[in-house]
Design a protein around this nucleic acid. Structure first.
Lengths: 222, 222
DNA sequence: TCCTTCTTTGATCAATCTGTGAACTTGGTT
DNA sequence: AACCAAGTTCACAGATTGATCAAAGAAGGA
């Protein structure tokens, strides 16, 4: 992974989903897709993306419901896709916590523009650039880190891995989940890879920064 | 979650399924139906409903099997429909992970009451990942536990066992049922295994956390 | 292209957990 | 009270899982 923001697309029409995904990937975003409400919620909860692109009309339950569930714990920027310029849909969508909307049919270009706008706004928000925990501090805009006040050099993977833990305190992830969410790998990749980078992170940020849960995986140290 | 919970009904008799669905829809639930075991599992996986109403006798494979598969990844509240007031059916159903049961013939009114009761219970800790009972608290996302405020280390098996009891308060399970539901073993494994882990759990979470029912098995302490 | 740095992977060793039997204790019954 | 069945405790061998390391492979810059 990288500084490329992660985006979850929740859209039941495969053609639109694929088109959007392709375009966004070309823009350098990290894109994941869900095709209905429930799996959308699950995806967002698991992935913790930087932004969600959400169809208003979905099987399972609709986009507004998804939006509400997503926002329950903490704010994730949401852009709604609405079929028509229906004002009431729109108000509902924004009321549910969407940050912006775009009406179908839309040009990919327009969507990308909105995404950048929303991300810029979200990033301007306070606390976006710094992650702290114990003696560790990461600056996500500069991708630098310090341990007990001492600057440490972190490689891209190490930084993303550490940042992932800092963004999900208290949660334990399996190696496979980490490979999917931090690396973006489909699955089946070598699990030793995770171990190696955990080792590197521990060496640089302190042995207790990451906690091992035997038989399960890793989580942020308590 | 919306004020309209989604319910999956798995029932092979069309008359019963229709009657139940009608009544539940009248109550404002969002109802989906499957008519046999395999499609029931598929429905639940796809729909991720708030609750499942499950017939014990089904074509394909029976309700217990469905229940087990459903619960494999995460807990979904289940209410079992049993044809007769057969005690062994009942225990088995609860052993497989059902939250409540109701014997046919039942009044729609009774079913609705149970559904509300189960949903209330389930919502007490809505996905927050926290299970509480007396001085014990488990965090299912971090797989950590505390006893009277003191953090305790639980191994994977111990944690799963304790969590199982917390998710099924008031229900007593035989050792074999525990081996099947917590361990996932087919059957016939050593019953001392359960005892050993019960012992470990008691040592860590207090001797009264698990209650022994002589000649039957174990349940959450009252 | 070559060189440097980072990532991935397999092998090996160490730590931890699990399952099991035997001895011992408790509870229920006659 | 004596007896039998059931539950508890304990220790340890075997199995799993994690840590560490070295080296090959990939990516990127000079």
């Amino acid at each position: 992974m990288s500084d490329h923001p992660t985006i979850a697309v929740v859209e039941d029409e495969p053609a639109i989903a694929a088109a959007v995904a392709t375009r966004l990937r070309a823009e350098g975003f990290n894109v994941h897709i869900a095709v209905d409400g429930p799996s959308g919620v699950a995806l967002v909860e698991q992935l913790q993306p930087d932004l969600v692109v959400l169809d208003l009309m979905l099987p399972g339950f609709d986009g507004i419901e998804v939006c509400r569930r997503i926002q329950s714990d903490r704010h994730v920027p949401v852009i709604m896709l609405t079929a028509r310029g229906n004002e009431s849909d729109l108000v509902l969508g924004l009321g549910a916590g969407a940050d912006d909307y775009i009406t179908k049919p839309f040009s990919p270009r327009a969507l990308v523009a909105r995404i950048h706008a929303v991300l810029r706004r979200a990033h301007a928000a306070p606390g976006s650039g710094r992650l702290r925990h114990r003696g560790v501090e990461l600056d996500t805009s500069g991708r630098t880190g310090t341990h007990d006040g001492v600057a440490v050099h972190l490689t891209v993977t190490e930084f993303d891995l550490a940042a992932w833990f800092l963004r999900h305190p208290g949660v334990v992830f399996t190696r496979e989940q980490l490979l999917q969410s931090v690396w973006g790998y489909p699955d089946g990749s070598g699990e030793r890879t995770v171990d190696s980078h955990i080792q590197a992170v521990r060496r640089k940020l302190g042995p207790d920064f990451v906690r091992t849960v035997h038989g399960v995986g890793y989580g942020l140290g308590q």
